[in-house]
Amino acid sequence: MMIIKMRDIVGTFASNKDIAKEIRTQTLIPLLEKEGEELIIDFEGVDGATQSFIHALISEPMRRVGTSKFFEKVTFKTCNEKIQAIIIIVGDYMQAGLE
């Protein structure tokens, strides 16, 4: 099981979409496309995130592997209420667009 510590990569506010793209293309998608691999995205120490950042991080992986497989394989850890709310928004509208 792989763990991505977001604080080390984005600092306390996750908004830089170039960084989201880097995580998405270099880590998230390759890992999700491997059989049996699981991933934890840990937001410990991150105070906030924009919808744009979370979209850039997870929307394409959700499209590629399908939403149910995505949520089976990816777990979000230590998210505060604001970050949780944004992940839920992106997860919900992506599912609405794909279902």
Partner: peptide, 19 residues
């Protein structure tokens, strides 16, 4: 959901059209 980067619902991989 309207973005200048795609016409797909849900946006492109980098933009959702929600800002």
């Amino acid at each position: 959901g309207i973005t200048g980067t795609t016409s797909k619902p849900g946006g492109s991989e980098q933009n959702a059209g929600a800002g």
